[in-house]
Design a protein around this nucleic acid. Structure first.
Lengths: 225, 225
DNA sequence: CGATGCCATCAGGGATTTCCTGATCTATTC
DNA sequence: GAATAGATCAGGAAATCCCTGATGGCATCG
């Protein structure tokens, strides 16, 4: 078996699991335990515990879900990043939106994989991230690419940062559930202008329909706590 | 003679896992494999496959998630119930609303447990359901009881459990960002029918526009972690 | 300076969705 | 068996979506 090599020459890399679903943790443990070069050193579903465990166990990599029992995974990523710059972080979320992937990467994560992906991909993702690379789910990559298709270079900023002030204003109002007419009235604009803003926003965020736009706007709005 | 009757005298009870998260399936397999009286005979994340597997494998019990790749778990429960009345069914959902527990039980399920519960409870739940009992998560029980205590609320509250099963299904799909046409296609319905469902939902929830409906649906969907 | 690019504004027009009303059939309830 | 609720679908006017294109303002850069 080729796995012998790892066992002989290198210690196993340690993985900390942070996910608020016990069954998902169980699944991850099972899958990871089959990899000869990886071992799970700890698990939790809470942000506070995750920080404690990171300190105590000093893992090589953390696999982090975005929705945790006591808060937002993004916040955890930022904290771990600032305190343990060497720690690799792979986000494993059930939300398949690049919206979150970008935010996660920007917050300091090194990869994003969603739970619907075949379990086998997790090992690949972990190894790639441990090797210093960035791992993204194929569909996330596609989404990001279409989102940045019209740009010269993929800047590190979130797509939403690319919105102009006016566009952001419209985006925000969309997130409130306002109709095009209402927005036009509130901003004293023509309905046609608002429609154009919506088109621009969609293009910049790589969205394909009004429904998608609305969904992202609402999510973003709710994310702003 | 041994006290462990099932190990000697009875075959292991077979479990079919229906869940659209590969990692959760993995976790369930791991947990169930530790029970001496239970064995996993099959797994899938799709309604169609679930029906096929139920026919081929004739499991003793199915553990079913409500959100599946190609539709609603409640629908699956109804179909399995009508075709295999002997089949026991335990719902294992990430949605912790008693709303769903009641609907699941009414649709023919024999238990409801949510994924946040400790993995150990799953075995208990499976055994109780196999023994002919109804299993409900403690918090679900509590919710139902308190719900009975409050009984009818003033209609101004506009609650989601006013929605019929079909309406809830549509509401759910709206929250996923699906368009009316997509929903119609997925449910094999006329667009007009879906439109009517949307109208009904709006009326029941006290909403005034498509935007409001979308916003609430997305918000609700996100709350179901 | 002139070219270029981004921004904000608005229009045309066909395709699609929304919104309101009403109809039919079925199942359940009282 | 009448009443109520659910699920299904249709018609038609209003609103919107979506794509394309246009205008003027303002900045930057070579």
């Amino acid at each position: 078996m080729r796995s012998r090599r790892w066992q002989l020459n290198a210690r196993k890399r340690t993985v900390l699991i942070v996910d608020d679903h016990p069954l998902v943790r169980e699944g991850l443990k099972g899958v990871i335990s089959e990899a000869a070069d990886l071992t799970v050193c700890g698990e939790t579903g809470k942000i506070r515990e995750a920080q404690d465990l990171a300190r105590e166990l000093n893992p090589d990599i953390a696999i982090i879900d975005l929705s945790l029992e006591d808060g937002n995974g993004l916040e955890l990523i930022r904290r771990l990043k600032s305190r343990y710059p060497e720690l690799r972080m792979l986000v494993c979320s059930m939300r398949d939106e690049s919206l979150f992937a970008e935010r996660a990467i920007n917050s300091g994560a090194h990869g994003y994989i969603n739970k619907h992906e075949v379990a086998g991909h997790v090992i690949d993702a972990l190894r790639q991230v441990l090797a210093g690379k960035i791992y993204l789910s194929p569909d996330v990559v596609e989404r990001i690419i279409t989102g940045f298709a019209h740009q010269k270079q993929p800047t590190a900023g979130s797509s939403i940062d690319e919105l102009s002030n006016r566009e952001l204003e419209v985006f925000w109002l969309i997130g409130q559930g306002r109709s095009t007419t209402e927005i036009a009235k509130q901003l004293s604009l023509s309905v046609k202008t608002v429609e154009t803003h919506r088109e621009k926003i969609k293009r910049k965020l790589g969205l394909t329909s009004a429904g998608q736009l609305m969904r992202h706007a609402v999510q973003w709005d709710l994310e702003q706590r």
